[in-house]
Design a protein around this nucleic acid. Structure first.
Lengths: 234, 234
DNA sequence: CGTTATGTTGACCTCCTTCAAAGGCTGTGG
DNA sequence: CCACAGCCTTTGAAGGAGGTCAACATAACG
């Protein structure tokens, strides 16, 4: 994981003009001039699978936007265990607590190889104060975090294991339209759904037997959308 | 539930000068003059137990601040059931989605008699744009919603029923310092913790037998803080 | 004083966890 | 290239926690 976007010698530097950041909702209201001025301190990082973006309790100097990949936010439990509380997909923002507090509230880990933009909190705060559209976008992103947390409670922490798993697969968006979606390990799925690794394995195995999903080499290559939706109802 | 704060004939009208709203974080940065100008369209409502403040999916014209009492936010499940996703205590804000969207994302119901301030979204949006301190306070409130949602996942949706209940009681703050805390019905507790009414009843009954809590007429009059904290560890 | 919600308790059964073991894949070193 | 270690996945068996169904008690209320 090393900076590249702001490195003058970065091969992709020229592509910053079409960088996702420009089209990213948070900055979509900025003029090209404004954005150029802001772009410099923004790093475009690649976080390989299992990489830790930041850790719970540490000082929070950056906000992260996810351009590609999959990131989980987890918290450490007092008894030593841990619980995943959020699943971030491209377009989501991580570490917004940096804007109002001193430390990160979660540990952020890449579930799949992830491309992220690391933005200093001061940059976002300045934009927030000077640009109306950025400000509105920021509020929307915050609301999105709340909605995702709610979805986590309602969809992934409610009902029997089978229904939760079906909802997780639907959330992950393994679809015929987008084949070869990498699915998390059974262990990660367990932490996501609040069940044990073994139960996660059993449910997935049962899904495969029933023909609800087809998995090859860890990638979901096909699944029965209607069937899973029925299970998700509970 | 009827307006009173803005009613010129409201007995408590004069007390608006010392109204919680003035001291409320969201407005704490405003001058008395600014606040007076804003105060008119703000209604101070009393929501009796079981009253519905707003409903999921309805147009969202207002933001609510809770001055006193206890409010739950619930969502309707596709299968007909419902799940409580948030518990609001004095100082918390409900319905902030009104600032970025068209409709409410939850149904808000008073668990105990509640005093709330009902603020038109336009008022908050204008303040947010014109007053820096209000803006910062708003971001903090949003982050607070996120934190509360996380707490709901980590504390109230994780681990065995006994541990969840212990954490709920601790969250409700039934303490020797603040005696006679009204506790929710078993049914509400079940919806809060994702367990059945019967299990909630059994756990509470067991707590009483073990002397962890003392309940009289629905009010918790005493509890063993250390004992509950131990159970909460899981 | 019946009527209706709410709380309590019991019996039973299901789902999930726990503990255990075996198979499969990957990387490493001989 | 093979052997072996380590991790993940799968599957089995046993036990427990919680759900379900039902009966009954209690309290609230017209």
């Amino acid at each position: 994981m090393k900076p590249n976007c702001t490195d003058p010698g970065w091969p992709g530097r020229a592509k910053c003009a079409v960088c996702d950041v420009r089209n990213f909702v948070l900055f979509s209201g900025l003029s090209a001039h404004d954005l150029d001025a802001m772009l410099l301190p923004i790093d475009n990082l690649n976080a390989p699978q299992h990489a830790v973006l930041y850790q719970q309790g540490e000082p929070a100097p950056h906000v992260y936007t996810l351009r590609n990949g999959l990131i989980k936010l987890k918290v450490d439990l007092p008894n030593g265990g841990q619980r995943t509380v959020r699943l971030l997909r491209p377009g989501d923002v991580a570490g917004m607590e940096a804007l109002v507090g001193e430390t990160y509230h979660h540990t952020a880990i890449a579930l799949q190889d992830a491309d992220v933009c690391r933005i200093p909190r001061e940059v976002v705060m300045r934009l927030d104060q000077t640009n109306q559209s950025v400000h509105q976008a920021l509020l929307q992103r915050w609301q999105r975090s709340v909605d995702q947390a709610d979805h986590f409670i309602v969809a992934l922490s409610t009902g029997p294991a089978e229904a939760r798993m079906a909802r997780l697969l639907i959330t992950l968006g393994c679809s015929s339209a987008q084949p070869e979606t990498t699915i998390p390990s059974r262990k990660d799925m367990g932490a996501l759904l609040g069940i044990t690794t073994e139960t996660a394995s059993r449910v997935i195995a049962e899904f495969r037997r029933r023909g609800l999903i087809h998995i090859e080499k860890g990638d979901c290559i096909d699944y029965d959308q209607a069937g899973l939706a029925r299970l998700a109802q509970g």
